[in-house]
Design a protein around this nucleic acid. Structure first.
Length: 103
DNA sequence: AACATGACCATTA
DNA sequence: GTAATGGCCATGT
């Protein structure tokens, strides 16, 4: 494990995302003080094993759920978001204009 | 130390 | 609407 400060910073921001809202990787990176390092955010979440972090509230800039190893990860994420009042359109993505987290 | 990989984003055509 | 390009950095071998 040995979570680096960068990762802990990312986890801290993700943990602050309110229920019923979503944030993009770029947004999380920006709020975490890592502008332009959206990639690291996704990587940090992939290595994440802390159930206290609502990683399912983080999606890509297209409002879609990013693929992930394991198979059921994307599906699980969608179910969890729907369980939090977040609806998907017919394209299978979330309207960021509507559910985007605004700190 | 070097190389390759990765849950990405913004811009341009 | 899609396709391609550049950039950014941590992790594992």
């Amino acid at each position: 494990m040995t979570a680096s400060t960068t990762y802990r910073d990312i986890y801290a921001v993700v943990s602050r995302i309110p229920r019923g809202t979503v944030a993009t990787y770029g947004q999380v990176a920006q709020l975490a003080g890592l502008p332009g390092r959206a990639r690291q955010v996704g990587y940090a979440l992939s290595e994440l094993d802390d159930p206290a972090v609502p990683w399912h509230r983080v999606i890509n800039a297209k409002g879609e759920i990013s693929p992930r190893c394991g198979g059921e990860g994307d599906e699980l994420q969608r179910l969890r978001l729907e369980d939090e009042e977040v609806r998907f359109d017919r394209h299978g993505r979330v309207p960021l204009e509507r559910y985007r987290w605004r700190p």
